[in-house]
Amino acid sequence: MSLRIVVTVKYVPDATGDRHFADDLTVDRDDVDGLLSELDEYAVEQALQISENSDDDVEITVLTVGPEDAKDALRKALSMGADKAIHVEDDDLHGTDALGTSLVLAKAVEKAGYDLVISGMASTDGTMGVVPALLAERLGVPQVTLLSEVSVEDGTVKGRRDGDAASEQLEASLPAVVSVTDQSGEARYPSFKGIMAAKKKPVQSWDLSDLDIEAEEVGLEGAYTVVDAAAERPARTAGTIVKDEGEGGKQLAEYLASQKFI
């Protein structure tokens, strides 16, 4: 038996950088360094663990939709241990929203061939957390999302989803789309050997025509939403800072009372 896993990874602006918007109100990807979204490292990690715990022949493909630099994200995932990579890149993709991204990912996943798709819980820039559900809807396969624990056995994926009201055990047959949270287990660091090996692993590039997608279906033009304005949040006015010299608790209580919290 063989198991084909596709891990969807996003290349995002570093959250600790000074993120902002470009003139067309899309995320500015030029001024801030990018990286593999940390939350997608957990997806790569779970794919690797499924592979290590399996008697089957497991092949892990990492897939990204993004600009030229997004190759860095693929390299990182390859150096963690994924087998090969697919980069969907096209100028017409600029400004694509979640619906459009899910279309491109769905077509690419189908073209690549898959038994299991593993995504992160959310991208660290858009933070919508909807692409995995959209992908499952488009592919017409079960959605087994937001798992803090996942395992695959005999063509079935099982996992634990910790929701607001309850913790649930889930189960579905493959093929399926899974997403994992940052509670699923720390992602490994690439080893030196892994980094060297990654340089030789294949990275395929596809554009929209390879996926039979028309330019109008994606990008700013194809987007289903418009951002009309973006404004930097006004800096908070500098607050009062006191040093505790034995009275800190009392002073704070005084402040809270003055603000009517007590």
């Binding site: 908070r236 800072i241 040093k243 505790d244 034995g246 608790g249 209580a253």
Partner: peptide, 22 residues
Amino acid sequence: ELVDYGVVGDLFDVVPALTEEI
């Protein structure tokens, strides 16, 4: 940088004192 009111101090001193005062 975010606070309206901040106390520089050990939370093991400040928090219990605050709770008592409240």
